[in-house]
């Protein structure tokens, strides 16, 4: 992961020419119904390299969630193209998993933690034993051992979000699309989950597109941060985060570079 750091983004044109990007957007526009003259997204283009951790920040109404839904294949753009590993995105794929912010709505309340994780494996050609084994592995990996037989409503928010992440990992996605996954959690839980996510992403080598409205979170997690502006949603700035990995909640956040990025992003989000 450290290798990818910032260099890749510098040479994004060159890299794109030689290796296939995990995701590629070109001139993507999105409009909703009657608001034809006011697009939600206006000509958005960027690439995401395999294994990259890309964060997208922006004010509310800048089309962050729309962008993620387009990448998942839940929506079609009104103009422009979206590609996943070199081929056009035509619909959802198990290779691209979404983690929603509202974990409570995204989990099946009538299934236990184990059952919720297993959902992603059912109908995927995994045998019953293979399923149980993988669920068990993910329960351990996400620290859900004590909660395995409990129902989602019996768990804290942080634990529920862990279950959703485990379900996404069970899909064995190559891209994880995360829509403000820690936005509803308390500060401490959020920091713990940030570090767990970074470790997981590095270990699995999965590409992550992470949406947040918290610019410090974006800098802390990302290899690169894309700042969106609103009305219409468009890329205002792309920032390479060259902070060393593994990152640390204290030292990384106190590094001069972190603070410099923070100043820059803060200014951008204020509209300068």
């Amino acid at each position: 992961m450290t290798l990818i750091g910032g260099d890749v983004a510098d040479q994004s044109e060159g890299v794109a020419a030689t290796a296939t990007p995990a995701l590629r957007l070109r001139g993507v526009c999105a409009r909703f119904g009657a608001a034809v003259n006011r697009p939600v997204l206006d000509r958005v283009s960027f690439d995401v390299c395999p294994g990259e951790f890309l964060c997208i920040v922006g004010p509310s109404g800048c089309g962050k969630t729309t962008l993620l839904r387009l990448l998942a294949g839940l929506m079609k753009p009104s103009a422009g193209t979206l590609e996943f590993e070199g081929s056009a995105i035509r619909g959802p794929s198990r290779a691209r998993a979404i983690v929603f912010q509202d974990y409570a709505n995204a989990l099946l309340p009538w299934r236990t933690v184990e059952g919720n994780i297993a959902l992603a494996l059912e109908g995927a050609g995994v045998s019953r034993e293979g399923r149980a084994e993988r669920v068990c592995g993910l329960v351990k990996k996400m620290g859900l051992e004590t909660a395995a037989r409990q129902y989602p409503q019996q768990l804290s928010g942080g634990m529920q979000q862990r279950v959703q992440i485990a379900r996404c990992l069970a899909q064995q996605p190559r891209v994880m699309l995360m829509d403000e996954p820690f936005g509803a959690l308390d500060a401490i839980t959020r920091q713990i989950l940030q570090d767990e996510l970074l470790a997981l992403a590095a270990e699995q080598g999965v590409t992550v597109v992470f949406i947040t409205h918290d610019l410090e979170e974006a800098i802390y997690l990302g290899d690169r941060v894309i700042v969106l502006a609103a009305n219409p949603g468009r890329i205002a700035e792309t920032i390479d985060v060259r902070l060393p990995r593994p990152r640390n909640q204290l030292t990384t956040r106190e590094a001069p570079q972190f603070l410099a990025h923070r100043h820059r992003l803060f200014g951008l989000l204020q509209g300068h």
């Binding site: 839940l74 794929s93 509202d102 709505n105 995204a106 959902l119 992603a120 059912e122 109908g123």
Partner: peptide, 24 residues
Amino acid sequence: RLREVAILLGMTKTRFLIKIATPS
């Protein structure tokens, strides 16, 4: 959300009916 989860997991209509809609 649960409909979307079913779509994202590529569930068939029958599976959606059995695993998501009916228990819900």
